[in-house]
Design a protein around this nucleic acid. Structure first.
Lengths: 231, 231
DNA sequence: TTAAGTGTAATTGTCGACAATTTTTTAAAA
DNA sequence: TTTTAAAAAATTGTCGACAATTACACTTAA
């Protein structure tokens, strides 16, 4: 799995390690969305003290994977359709702007590197029928590169450090392997073109459409599922 | 002061209260930007244990007012010009989208209420020469109402829960009382018009220009200060 | 004088116990 | 039986102490 947040350093403290394990467990759905978290129970399970666990919980709260109420406790966040759509709207705003900034701020080397990556994905895509690989790693790789390319620490922190954990959670829980592989590839290609043309306005527009298309794709899928259930 | 985050509940636990005090101290500059934080010292100063203090520090980290490194400690964030400009770019993206969503999602009552508020500000403005009051509370009130009007919890949390603490910090530290009062008022007025017309696209555009204008205003001021220092 | 290494002091991370609050259970009254 | 109240259990918040790591001062060698 290369889907890691590229901005964080290695986990050194035990709270860090437990945080990563919990993060994984929540994202993958091993801890049910919306379920209550028992501090004594979890601390015992990971063989750590409650203080250390709470430190880990604080980090989970930072990336919005759990919610906390004073004197009541923590819950894993709920995965609702509304939440998913809200997340995509936020992504549209942030990644759109990141893409604009990338067009202004990326170095020529960074752009070249991203073009190489895309070319390689194109090869892989042709090789293995273009479905499985590209959707997962390829897509995330691309988006990360654009975000980092913005050279805007504020945007990078917000998107990579917080939003993307939730994105991965929703991807897992709703079992999204969108059938948009080829179209997404073309869209990525066009975005890179706009960036290398240093056309910030177009780059932002294309990225927003790219994400909006994903959102609409999901909306359709949801509507379809709903129709199936009713039949 | 009405400049509080409108989304949070009252502080119940002592860690909450210390958090608020520290937040104030950092925003107002009583704790120097970039300075190191000594846990034993602060704990003694507030007469609480280190555990409680660390809980408060975690909350400060959540709204990006301090930065933490494992085994090394915490520092108050640095206020740099680059950071300020990055912040405004992020605001442009997020608040622009929030404004678009507000045009789609606000209730008629909410819109009416916002129009009332603006009218009242207009009165105050005429009354007291329109400078002092409007810039501070009026501006923040307006922006908060728009953000909340998006009815998008994700956007609301990001902007009100995190970004705006930093915004206030920069405002204090850089002593910003922008001379844009009258122009800002007109811009607010136009934005509300777009929202009440349910024109999301225009609403977003206007909000982005509004924030971009603030950013450019700051850039000019900085350039001016730099020129002064050199003379 | 500078550089590297060592030992001490200080700071952060982790732990288990107690206090305060909330939830559940139990008992009593309507 | 349902509702209310009180008691008990469980959970979260806070505390002080110890362990691990880092920062600093001092010594020693180049």
């Amino acid at each position: 799995m290369l889907l890691q947040n590229p901005t964080k350093q290695a986990a050194v403290t035990t709270a860090d390690k437990v945080f990563e394990q919990l993060q994984h467990a929540i994202v993958e759905g091993d801890m049910a969305a919306g379920s209550k978290i028992s501090e004594p129970e979890l601390a015992k399970h990971y063989q750590i003290s409650r203080s250390t666990l709470r430190e880990a919980l604080n980090r989970l709260e930072k990336c919005h994977l759990i919610e906390r109420k004073a004197n009541i406790g923590s819950r894993v966040v709920d995965c609702t359709i509304e939440g998913l759509l809200e997340l995509y709207i936020t992504r549209e705003a942030l990644e759109g702007m990141a893409c604009r900034q990338a067009a202004l701020n990326m170095t020529d080397e960074e752009i070249a590197h991203m073009q190489d990556m895309l070319a390689q994905h194109a090869g892989d895509k042709a090789l293995q029928d273009g479905v499985a690989y590209y959707q997962e790693e390829g897509d995330v790789d691309f988006h990360y590169k654009v975000i980092l390319g913005s050279h805007n620490q504020q945007l990078i922190n917000l998107i990579c450090g917080q939003l993307y954990h939730l994105v991965r959670m929703y991807r897992c829980q709703f079992g999204m392997h969108s059938p948009r592989a080829t179209r997404a590839f073309t869209e990525h290609s066009n975005i890179i073109q706009a960036i290398s043309d240093r056309d910030g306005e177009l780059a932002e527009l294309l990225m927003r459409r790219h994400i909006a298309a994903s959102r609409k794709n999901i909306e359709n899928k949801i509507a379809l599922q709903k129709a199936e259930q009713e039949s």
